[in-house]
C-alpha cells in the first residue's frame, strides 16, 4: 500500500521533488550521485564503451526527452551522438546554451588547447582534450559548478547540492596528499590515446608515449618499433582502455618488458562519489606499480 502511495506521489509531485538527470558517462554519473544522491539518474554509456564512437540510440532519446539536466563531459567528446540525441529528444530545456545542458569541460581549464586543426594529425580537437574526468581536482571543481547548476534548477534543495559538492571537493582534497605520495616516483606511462593526460599532468607523471601515432589512427609495426626504440632502457607501464585494441600494447610491453594493464577510463556505471575516488585509487596504484 505504502509503495503505491509513494508511486502516486511521485507521479504527481515528481518533477517538483527532484531533478531528472542524465549523465553521458559513468564518471559524470558518479559526480551527479555525489551532488544529488537521491536524484533520478540515467547513465547513457558504460565504462567499456568509447564515448567518442558511440551512436545515438532510441533509449538515449527517451532518457533525454524528460530530463531536466544533461551532464556531459563535453569538448566534442560526445559530438558523434549527443547532439543528434538531444535534438531528437525535442526537449528545449537541455539544448546547449540552456540551463539544462552542463559540460564538465566548460567548467575547467583544458589541456591540448589550440594546436593545428589538421587531421593529418589524426582526430584532433583544437577546443582542447576533453578527457577531464580523470583529474580529481578538476572533477572537484566540476562538482561545485554542478552543485551550483542544480541549485539553480531546483532551488528548494540548493543548500543540499552545494553542501554535497563541497563535501566531494573536501574528499578529493583529503586524498590528494596520499595520491601524490604514491605517484611521486612513478617512472611514467604509455597510453593508447591521450585520454588520461589530465591525471598524469595533475600528479606530474610523465607521459612516455602513445600507442597510436596520432589520435584515432591505429599504430603500424613501424610506429611500435620506433616507440620501443625510444623507450628502451626506461621504466614504465602501458595502460589501455577496454575498447582499445590490446595488440599494439602487448607487443610493446613484450619488447620493453613492461607490464600492460587494461583500465577503464570510467568508473563502474553504478559509482557514486566514493566509487569515483576508488576508481582514481585504482589508476594511481596501477601507475605507481610501474618500475
Amino acid at each position: 500500500m505504502n509503495r503505491w502511495l509513494i508511486a502516486l506521489l511521485a507521479l504527481f509531485a515528481g518533477p517538483a521533488l527532484a531533478l531528472d538527470l542524465v549523465a553521458t558517462s559513468p564518471s559524470m554519473g558518479a559526480l551527479v550521485r555525489a551532488v544529488a544522491p537521491s536524484a533520478a539518474l540515467t547513465v547513457l554509456a558504460g565504462p567499456d564503451q568509447d564515448l567518442h564512437m558511440l551512436q545515438a540510440k532510441p533509449s538515449m532519446i527517451r532518457a533525454l526527452r524528460g530530463a531536466d539536466l544533461v551532464v556531459a563531459i563535453g569538448a566534442e567528446l560526445e559530438v558523434g551522438w549527443l547532439p543528434a540525441a538531444t535534438s531528437s529528444a525535442a526537449n528545449p530545456a537541455i539544448q546547449p546554451g540552456r540551463e539544462g545542458y552542463f559540460e564538465a569541460a566548460a567548467q575547467v581549464p583544458l589541456l591540448d588547447v589550440g594546436g593545428t586543426a589538421d587531421r593529418a594529425q589524426g582526430d584532433v580537437h583544437p577546443a582542447g582534450n576533453p578527457h577531464v574526468d580523470l583529474d580529481p581536482m578538476r572533477m572537484a571543481q566540476v562538482a561545485e559548478a554542478l552543485g551550483e547548476r542544480m541549485a539553480r534548477l531546483d532551488s528548494a534543495n540548493a543548500a543540499q547540492y552545494r553542501r554535497n559538492a563541497a563535501r566531494f571537493a573536501e574528499a578529493v582534497d583529503s586524498r590528494m596528499p596520499g595520491w601524490q605520495a604514491q605517484l611521486a616516483d612513478a617512472p611514467g606511462v604509455v597510453l593508447y590515446h591521450r585520454d588520461a593526460i589530465y591525471l598524469l599532468e595533475r600528479f606530474g607523471v610523465p607521459l612516455l608515449g602513445t600507442i597510436e601515432p596520432v589520435p584515432g589512427v591505429p599504430p603500424s609495426g613501424r610506429d611500435l618499433r620506433n616507440l620501443a626504440g625510444k623507450l628502451a632502457g626506461h621504466d614504465g607501464i602501458i595502460i589501455h582502455a577496454p575498447y582499445q585494441s590490446p595488440k599494439g600494447a602487448r607487443k610493446l610491453g613484450r619488447e620493453l618488458g613492461w607490464s600492460v594493464r587494461m583500465l577503464p577510463l570510467e568508473p563502474p556505471v553504478s559509482a557514486n562519489g566514493d566509487g569515483y575516488l576508488r576508481h582514481i585509487d585504482r589508476w594511481v596504484s596501477t601507475i605507481a606499480s610501474a618500475g
Partner: peptide
C-alpha cells in the same frame, strides 16, 4: 558560455 558546449 557557461551553459554552452566547448566546440571547435
Amino acid at each position: 558560455g557557461l551553459f554552452g558546449a566547448v566546440t571547435s
